[in-house]
C-alpha cells in the first residue's frame, strides 16, 4: 500500500466548492423560514442557561436532539450524501448523537450547569458564535446569504452551538456527548481546507479550542465537573 504521506488533502475531495455551497442554497430555499425558528430556539436556549440554569440542560437536550436528527435527515442524507459517500457513515453518527443528547437530558445524572468558570464562558462564546456570526461567514467569503449556514438547518453551526452549550455543563455524560461533534468539526474543517476555503480556519480553531476545553473540563475532579 502506498504511504499516506503521498496523498494531499485535496486528493480526498470528491466535489467542487461550487457544488458544495449550492447544497446549502438548496437546503435554505427548501426550508425557509424555518431558519427563524431554529435561531430563535437557539437564542432561547442560551438565555435559559444564563437566566434559569435549573432545568436548562434538560431543555437543551430536548431541543438539540431533534435538530441533530433533522440535520442528519434533511441535509446529510437528502443532499450531502449525493456527492459524498462518507455521509453514509456521518448520518448514523448524527442520529446516534441525537439519541445520546436525548438520553443525557432525561436520564438521572445527565449534564448539569455549575459554577460559571473560564471553560463555561468560552463555551458560551462558542455557542453564540455558532448562532449569530456564523451565517454571516457566507457574506464574508463572498457567497450570497442564500448559501448561509444556519443553526438547526446546516451541520457546522449546529455542531458548534452544541459543543458550546455542552462545555457550559458538567458531568460524566460529556465524555459521551462531545466526541461526535468534535470529530465532525475536524472532518468539516478539513473538507473546507481541501476546498481552500478560509472558513476552514474558524471551524478548525473552534474544534481545537473545544477539544482543549473539553479536556480541561473532563480533567477536573468529579466534584467540580
Amino acid at each position: 500500500m502506498e504511504p499516506w504521506s503521498t496523498y494531499r488533502l485535496d486528493d480526498f475531495l470528491l466535489f467542487s466548492p461550487r457544488v458544495y455551497w449550492r447544497l446549502f442554497e438548496a437546503q435554505n430555499a427548501a426550508l425557509w423560514p424555518l431558519h427563524l425558528a431554529t435561531m430563535l430556539a437557539g437564542l432561547a436556549l442560551v438565555l435559559l442557561i444564563l437566566r434559569r440554569p435549573g432545568r436548562a440542560m434538560l431543555w437543551t437536550g430536548l431541543l438539540l436532539a431533534p435538530l441533530w436528527a433533522f440535520v442528519a435527515w434533511s441535509f446529510l442524507l437528502q443532499r450531502y450524501a449525493g456527492i459524498n459517500w462518507a455521509m453514509d457513515y456521518a448520518a448514523p453518527a448524527f442520529f446516534l448523537q441525537a439519541v445520546l443528547l436525548l438520553a443525557a437530558a432525561v436520564m438521572p445524572g445527565g449534564p448539569a450547569l455549575g459554577r460559571r468558570d473560564a471553560v463555561s464562558r468560552a463555551g458560551l462564546g462558542l455557542a453564540v458564535a455558532g448562532l449569530l456570526p456564523y451565517p454571516a461567514l457566507a457574506l464574508a467569503s463572498g457567497r450570497p446569504l442564500t448559501m448561509a449556514e444556519v443553526f438547526g438547518i446546516a451541520p457546522d453551526p449546529t455542531v458548534l452551538v452544541t459543543i458550546g452549550l455542552l462545555l457550559m455543563a458538567r458531568g460524566r455524560w460529556l465524555a459521551l456527548l462531545l466526541p461526535i461533534p468534535l470529530l465532525w468539526c475536524l472532518f468539516s474543517g478539513l473538507t473546507l481546507l481541501a476546498m481552500r476555503e478560509a472558513q476552514a480556519w474558524p471551524v478548525l480553531a473552534g474544534a481545537g479550542l473545544a477539544t482543549v476545553l473539553a479536556a480541561l473540563r473532563l480533567a477536573q475532579p468529579a466534584s467540580r465537573r
Partner: peptide, 12 residues
C-alpha cells in the same frame, strides 16, 4: 472526477 459529482442539483 469531481466535475460530474453534482448530486441531485438539476441545473448542474
Amino acid at each position: 472526477w469531481i466535475t460530474f459529482n453534482v448530486g441531485n442539483d438539476p441545473a448542474l
